[in-house]
Amino acid sequence: MTIHSELSIITVLDLLGTLAFAISGIRLASGKNIDWFGAYVIGLITAIGGGTTRDLILDVIPFWLEDIKYLITTAFALLVLIIFKNRLFRWKNTLFIFDAIGLGLFTVTGLIKSLAFGLPIWASVIMGVVTGALGGVIRDIIINEVPLLFRKDLYAIASIMGGIMYYICDQFEVLIPYQEIIAVLTVIFIRIIAVKFHLQLPKLNLSESSD
């Protein structure tokens, strides 16, 4: 696969991920007494934070500075939530659903772009986690929440497993775009299973037990 075709796939997945993450960010901001502009900023940070960090590490211009579609997509997400808030908010797991979709999509875009720029697979998997998770970390810090990455069921682990699945599919020469689809679905599936069955890594507790 050429760099051009890889970057075309990245653009499509990035826009879908931007929409999903922007919706999850704006939905979370709605409970923090934030106005429309503030909600837009929170949604945008959620959507571009990880990818911006990835691009800075790769020493390229952050993707959203070269294409206004990402800003427009975030504005569209805000508009959708404003218009359809009563319908969307009836879904108890609205935030989780869109966050899981965004994590899956951005994990894959980060991995693909890193591979296209010559990073080894292990580093590209890490960059996939950065792309998928860091925007949410920045969002949560801004709105004074403990980041999902550190407190929810198998968040970063789901991203890592999606990256590993992408690598496995590539080794077995699975056709494109099925590699990407399988990797994204792997992340979403692990998040759903982890939340449904409350699967978590053991909490770190180094305090001395009392006698």
Results as ranks from 00 to 15, higher is better:
Leu78Val: 10
Asn86Ala: 12
Met127Pro: 04
Leu149Glu: 00
Ile26Ala: 09
Pro202Tyr: 02
Ile188Pro: 00
Ile72Asp: 14
Ala22Arg: 08
Leu149Asn: 00
Asp14Leu: 02
Asp14Ser: 11
Ile82Leu: 11
Ile97His: 14
Asn205Asp: 13
Thr186Ser: 01
Lys85Ala: 01
Asp153Gln: 05
Ala156Ile: 10
Ala77Cys: 07
Leu95Ile: 06
Leu154Ala: 10
Leu206Tyr: 08
Asn33Glu: 13
Ile193Asn: 15
Ile176Glu: 00
Ala29His: 01
Ile121His: 08
Asp140Glu: 02
Ile82Gln: 00
Ala39Ile: 08
Leu13His: 08
Ala158Glu: 03
Leu154Gln: 11
Ile182Phe: 04
Phe189Glu: 10
Thr186Tyr: 03
Ile176Gly: 06
Leu148His: 03
Ile42Asp: 01
Gly136Ala: 11
Phe96Met: 11
Ile34Leu: 09
Ile168Val: 14
Ala194Ser: 13
Tyr70Val: 15
Leu58Ser: 04
Leu175Cys: 05
Ile176Met: 13
Thr2Asn: 13
Gly43Thr: 09
Ser124Thr: 09
Ile3Glu: 07
Ile143Thr: 08
Ile26Thr: 11
His4Gly: 11
Ser209Arg: 01
Ala20His: 04
Gly25Val: 14
Thr73Phe: 11
Leu78Gln: 10
Asn93Tyr: 01
Glu6Gly: 15
Asp211Thr: 12
Ser24Cys: 03
Leu19Ile: 09
Gly43Cys: 09
Lys85Trp: 05
Glu145Pro: 13
Pro62Glu: 07
Ser209Gln: 11
Trp122Arg: 15
Ile34Pro: 14
Ile101His: 05
Pro147Trp: 00
Glu180Leu: 06
Lys85Asn: 09
